[in-house]
Simulated assay, not measured.
Amino acid sequence: MTTTDPTTFPVLDEKVVIVTGAAMGMGEATARLFAEAGARVVVADFNEEKGRAVAESIGEAARFVKVDISKADQVEAMVAQTVEAFGRLDGAVNNAALTPDDKLASEFDEDYWDRLMAVDLKGTALSMKYELRQLLAQGDGGSIVNISSVSGFRPQPENIAYVAAKHGVVGMTKVAAMENGPHGIRVNSVAPGAIDTPMLRGALEQFGFDPAEYAPQLSLLNRFGQPREIAQASLWLVSDLSSYVTGTTLHVDAGYTSR
C-alpha cells in the first residue's frame, strides 16, 4: 500500500474543518490525517468518551464537540462552537452514520428505518445546512464532503434503509453543489467500498461472513481498504488541489462498482 505525506501533499494549512462521526473508524482516521496536514479539526461525535479521547490525542489542533446530527439545534451549535474555537469554518467531512440494517424489504424494521434515516440522511442534510450557512456568511468559499457508500450505487439485499439513505446522500450532494457553486463552495461525496472498520466487521459478523473469504468478493485488490485510504480521498476533496471538482462522487472501492 502506498501513502502520501500529508505535510507536503496536500496541505490544509490552518484550514478549519469539521469531521462528524470522528470518534472511530473512517471519521477518526480523517480527523487525524487532516490534523497532520495542518488543519484545525473539530472532532464531532455522539460518543463523548471516544470522541474526546481522539481530540485530546491529536492535541491543540483539535476540539471535541458532542453532537447528535439528527437534531438541528445540536448541529447548529456544533458549527457555532467551531467558529468560537477557531474563528471560522473552511470545510467539513460529513461522515457520521449508523450500521446498515439487516432486513428484507418485506420485513424491514420501521423503528430502525426512522433512526437510520434521521442520522444517515437527515443528519447529513442538517450538517450541510448549517455548514453552508456559515460558509455563505463568510463569503470566501469552502469545501464539503459527504460520505456515501458503494451501496448508494450498487444496492445490497437486506439493506433497504441504508441503501436508500446512501442514494439520498449522493442526490443531495449534487443539489448542494448546484446551488452553491456560484458562491465558490464545492460539495462532493466519497463512496467507500469495503473498509476495515468496526461497522464493517460488525456487519460481516451479523451476516455470518468470514472476512478473509469475503474480501475478494468486495475488492479487485483482494483486501479490505483501510480507514486512512478514505481519509486521503476526503483530504484531496477538501484541499485546493481539487479546486475544479464539485458535484461528483469519488469511488474508493478497489473497483467494486466497476464490475
Rank of each mutant, 00 (worst) to 15 (best):
T3C: 09
T3A: 12
F9E: 13
V11R: 02
L12T: 03
E14P: 08
K15D: 04
V16C: 03
V17N: 05
I18N: 01
V19D: 09
M24F: 10
G27H: 06
T30P: 03
V41F: 15
V42I: 14
A44H: 09
F46N: 11
N47P: 06
E48Q: 10
S57Y: 05
V65T: 09
K66V: 09
D68W: 13
I69T: 11
I69A: 02
D73T: 07
Q74N: 08
Q74M: 15
V75L: 05
A77G: 13
M78H: 07
A80P: 02
F86W: 08
G87C: 04
R88E: 15
A92E: 03
N94Y: 11
N94E: 09
N95T: 09
N95D: 14
L98T: 12
T99P: 01
A105G: 15
D114N: 14
V119C: 13
D120S: 03
D120R: 02
L121P: 07
T124H: 15
S127G: 11
L132D: 07
L132H: 13
R133W: 15
R133E: 10
Q134E: 13
A137W: 10
Q138Y: 12
D140L: 04
D140S: 12
D140I: 12
G142S: 08
S143G: 02
V145H: 00
S151L: 05
S151T: 15
G152E: 04
Q156V: 01
V163H: 02
A165V: 08
G171M: 12
K174R: 11
A176E: 01
A177N: 09
E179F: 01
P182N: 14
G184E: 07
I185S: 02
R186M: 09
S189A: 10
A191W: 04
A191I: 00
M199I: 08
M199H: 08
L200E: 06
L204R: 12
F207R: 03
D210R: 09
P211D: 03
E213L: 02
E213G: 01
E213T: 08
P216M: 11
L218R: 13
R223E: 12
F224N: 06
Q226P: 00
Q226V: 00
E229R: 04
Q232F: 11
S239F: 05
S243G: 03
S243W: 08
T246Q: 05
T248V: 06
T249K: 04
T249A: 04
L250V: 00
V252Q: 13
G255F: 03
G255I: 00
G255H: 10
Y256W: 14
